[in-house]
């Protein structure tokens, strides 16, 4: 499966990474190299092989659905660039 510059522009949008036009050809070339490399898996015969999601084939453990965290909002928000009265600030979404 070959990767076009249009594909790469779409992928970058899905990943929410700004990709300037000037960088597009170089990024697309390296991504195409990687995708070409992983494409060799298509030749492997995996008929009837169950996909492996966990290296030990174990199921995710569940815990009781109860609150385990104390309120640390002020502490956690110390790492945010812009907060006000406990809320995270972002550019205006609704005009």
């Amino acid at each position: 499966m070959s990767l076009t510059e249009k594909d790469v522009r779409h992928i970058a949008h899905l990943a929410r990474i700004a990709l300037p036009d000037a960088e597009l050809p170089a990024v697309a070339a390296k991504l195409a190299r990687i995708v070409g490399f992983v494409d060799q898996l298509q030749a492997a015969d995996t008929t009837g092989v169950a996909p492996m999601a966990h290296p030990l084939d174990e199921r995710q453990r569940l815990r009781a659905d109860v609150v385990t965290e104390a309120d640390q909002r002020a502490l956690l928000q110390q790492n945010a660039a812009a907060v006000d009265q406990g809320l995270y600030l972002v550019p205006r979404v609704i005009e």
């Binding site: 992983v38 898996l41 492997a44 995996t46 092989v49 169950a50 996909p51 492996m52 999601a53």
Partner: peptide, 8 residues
């Protein structure tokens, strides 16, 4: 496909 190869 990769998850199947992982099992192999």
């Amino acid at each position: 496909k990769a998850q199947q190869c992982r099992r192999l």
